[in-house]
Each structure stands twice: as C-alpha cells, then as structure tokens.
Design a protein around this nucleic acid. Structure first.
Lengths: 180, 180
DNA sequence: TAGATTGTTAATCGATTAACAATC
DNA sequence: TAGATTGTTAATCGATTAACAATC
C-alpha cells in the first residue's frame, strides 16, 4: 500500500492534485489506508491505454530519427516505432535498430494499410508540413513534431511539439531573471 | 507593418492573446496600424535574450546527444553546444559536429571555469540525477532533461523535461477519445 | 471623419488549493 | 474510538476572453 503523500514525494505534484486528477477516472484508493500499488498501476495502465501496444511511424531517418529508433524508453509504454521513412536514397533500405528505412514515397500507403494512428515527424523543417499532410491523409490522428514550426492540421488531429531550441530559450529567459 | 491578426494566422494563438502577452513587456505597436516588423523582431529578441549568445554544456554523447550536436535549429536563438561530455572511453576525445567529447570527470570543473549556466542532460536515466547534481554544483541554473525521470533540484534551478514517450502516450490518450 | 487596430479593464472560465466529510 | 487518508465541495487564484476606450 502507498499513500498519495508518499507517491508525490517523487513527483512535482501535490498529494491533493494527484487525488483530484485521479478522481476524474474513478475511485482507486481506500480511505484511511491509501492505494494498493499493483492495483493502482493496473488502473493507470488502463487509463493511459498502455495495456495494448501501439505501432508508430517515423518520418525522417536523419540523426534525430535514428536516435529515436535507438531510444529504449518507448517500451515502457508499449510503444514501438514499426515503420520508418526517408527520402535519402543512401538511407533507404538500410536497417537501424532493427527497423528498415523505407522510401518516403510509400509513407501514406503504408500508414493506411497498417492503420497507423500515431506518427513522429523528424524531417527537416522544409519538409515537415508536407509530411504532416501525407500522414494525415493516411489516417494518422496524432503527431509528435520535432520540426521547429507550427504545423497546420485539421482540428481532429492532435499535435505535440518538441521544440528543443524553444525549450532552451525559455530556460534562458528564467535564468536571466535570477540576477535581477 | 503587420497586424496581430496576420501574425497569429501562423500560430495557434489568438490576436488578443498575442497582444495581451506582449503587453507584459511594453507597447510595441501603433494603434490603428499594427506592428513594424523589424522593430517587433528586435524587441522580441531583446525580451528573449537572443541578442547575446549562450554557451551550453551537453552531458551524454550517445545517439541522442550526437543528434543534438548536429541539430541546426539552435543557431536561430544564438545558442551553441560548446562543451560535450561522456563517460565512455571509446567516445571521449572524438569530435562530432565540431565539438570534442570530453571526459565526464571534468564536467563540473569545465562548467565552473566557463561559467556555463545551461546544460542538457542526455545520459541514460540511471546517470541523470547524479549528472544533474554535478552540473548544478558547477553553477548551472537551467537544465534541459531528456532522461525519463523527475530530477530533484534546488528551487533556484529550472528544469525543462522532454519526455518523448510521455508525449506519445498523451497523444494516444487523445486519439483514443475520438472514437468515443 | 470613418475604419482599423492596439492596449487595457472587467468578466468569464478553468484549474489549483483549502477545508472537510466519509471511511478504513 | 483515534488516527490516517481518501474523495469531494467550496473558495481561491490565475489565465483567457469579451468589451471597449485610445489613437493612428
């Protein structure tokens, strides 16, 4: 058993916040006692959908794309980059971390065929919007975008941006304040 | 000249939001007219601190670290990864994208000597907390953390987390809702 | 002057937190 | 029963938006 107090000692979240958030999905604890660890993990996995695996398509197999292919942290959530694409003929056909790089020409068709719903865009910024449009036509509903620009997408498609320069920039902004 | 309306057509921000946010820093537009593009860019650069360059230290020169070294998008904000570190003897001494990988043993001293204020942590998760403590002892006040864990840091140190698996997970969460 | 557009004040909304009843 | 801890209701806070005055 574990209390919300104990759990949140390892997170930047207050115990109340933790309980309030959980309450959106049901009651998982025992009053006066706490949460049964195994049961809580199980419930969270169901809420998050970790219980069934998701296949992910990667567009762009440059150095960032290949770093993503090697990244170990996806398995934790039952995620796999199953298909990877690039336009560079020198890269097409090669295998990185067990995934063969396919010709980006087949991006849309492959996504359609395998009913992929989530794509990662790790192309150069110039190619990102066009790539987004292709994967969306193929049926993708969620995009993790590493290209430093704002993608224009239909309202039923979710985009999560990872803009590393922006993140650093906002760190700098805060760090500058310390002195003053 | 450009209006807040035009500018925000390219962003996921409303014109009012744009003007409200800017108003925190001053008045940069002309009523009835809009914003002078060059002047606005200049003012924004000052607010963000893009006008002077920042040196950044990279801890961890694995595939992600090296992808970051190759990343072109930092120059846009006048950012440079100037020092990179790893513990792997096979990597130490090698040069990637013009930056020599140094022995992680000298992480703290180098940061101290060159008064580095911003560090990127791209180590394996096991090493992340320890690395954070070292860079903080060296004087770092802002950390961009790629390791999938919550770093414990003093309250005057800012941490920005890039947890790619989490981002994907929350995309999946939203995508799952669409059907229902 | 009329039209455009900014910057700001006040209203609304949503998220966080405080207080507490429920209950183990 | 007393102590612990959850889940919830109400209060607070901050951020977004609506409305509008200022002004080019």
């Amino acid at each position: 058993m574990i209390s919300s107090d104990k759990i949140t000692q390892f997170l930047n979240v207050t115990p109340v916040q933790f309980r309030k958030d959980l309450s959106c999905f049901g009651e998982f604890g025992k009053r006066g006692v706490g949460y049964e660890v195994r049961k809580l993990i199980g419930e969270l996995e169901i809420i998050l959908g970790v219980d069934n695996a998701w296949d992910i398509a990667l567009a762009g197999a440059g150095s960032l794309g290949r770093a993503l292919l090697r990244f170990e942290g996806f398995s934790r959530f039952n995620l796999r980059i199953t298909y990877a694409f690039d336009t560079n003929p020198k890269v097409i056909g090669k295998v990185f971390s067990g995934v063969e790089i396919r010709d980006a020409r087949y991006l849309r068709k492959t996504i359609e065929k395998h009913r992929i719903k989530i794509a990662i865009i790790a192309t150069p910024p110039e190619a990102a919007q066009c790539t987004a449009e292709q994967v969306i036509k193929g049926g993708v509903k969620g995009i993790l975008n590493f290209a430093p620009l704002v993608l224009r997408v239909p309202s039923d498609v979710y985009v999560s941006n990872v803009d590393m320069a922006c993140e650093l920039e906002s760190l700098i902004f805060f760090v500058k304040q310390i002195g003053s």
